[in-house]
Simulated assay, not measured.
Amino acid sequence: MTQAAADLLTKLQGRHGALMFHQSGGCCDGSSPMCYPDGDFIVGDRDVLLAVLDVGDDGVPIWISGPQFDTWKHTQLVIDVVPGRGGGFSLEAPEGMRFLSRGRAFTDAENAALDRDPPLTGARYAEGDRPGQRAPVVAEAQDACPIPGRRAARVQG
């Protein structure tokens, strides 16, 4: 998550309490990350937890459907924010901003790491499993998804 997106998310947490994301599968608002009050979107047993963002006391989980994860699993996603209005389902819509996903393809080493340590499913999460760490906040999307051949900036935290 970029710092600008984290700042907006913190503002939304102050207004709505605990939050969650679900990476949309293309209905209504394309493939935007949709922000909801935690629990307002029912997570299914096959949904996949991409990460828990390091924002707020409890963090903010990001979910994606299992079939969509199979399509995107080779991609690092970074949630960013830009001016504009997306669909009316996500909490940032009244702010005149919209969350969006930026990404890059994983390296062979990152794909191998994912194969060794698959992400949590909704079923495992319901049983109490949690990820070992939170996803960091970065200054800009390119800091998490560097352009090949360029040095990434430091991670803020």
Rank of each mutant, 00 (worst) to 15 (best):
V43G: 04
R85V: 09
R15I: 07
T71E: 14
G84I: 00
G149K: 04
G39I: 07
A153D: 14
P148T: 06
A112P: 01
I64T: 10
E110D: 08
M1C: 02
A51C: 12
F69A: 03
Q23E: 10
P136H: 05
R116Q: 12
P83Y: 00
T71A: 13
G157A: 12
Q156I: 11
E110V: 10
V52G: 03
F106D: 10
S31H: 15
S24Q: 04
G149P: 10
A123K: 15
Q13D: 03
R85N: 07
D143A: 10
C145L: 06
A109W: 03
S32E: 10
A135K: 03
R98M: 13
E95W: 01
L53D: 06
E127N: 12
G103T: 10
G86C: 04
R116M: 10
Y36T: 13
I42G: 09
E110H: 11
F89D: 04
L91F: 11
L100F: 10
Q3N: 08
A141L: 06
H16K: 07
Q133G: 13
G56Q: 12
P67R: 07
F41N: 14
R130Y: 00
F21Q: 09
V82K: 08
D70K: 14
A109H: 09
H22D: 06
R130F: 04
C27F: 13
P136Y: 01
V78F: 00
P94H: 05
G88F: 04
P37Q: 15
E95M: 11
T121H: 01
S65F: 05
D143S: 11
V60A: 09
T121C: 02
G56T: 07
I147Y: 09
I42V: 14
I64Y: 06
E92I: 00
D115S: 12
V60P: 07
P148A: 08
D38K: 15
G30N: 08
P148D: 13
T107E: 02
M97L: 12
G56D: 06
G96K: 04
A126K: 15
D7E: 12
I62Q: 14
I64W: 07
G157Y: 08
V43T: 07
A112E: 14
T107A: 03
R116N: 12
F41M: 14
T75L: 10
D108V: 06
C145K: 02
L114H: 15
L50H: 06
A123N: 12
R46F: 12
D115L: 13
R102D: 01
D115K: 14
Q142M: 08
D47E: 07
G103W: 00
M20S: 11
L9C: 01
A126C: 10
G25S: 12
P37V: 15
V55N: 05
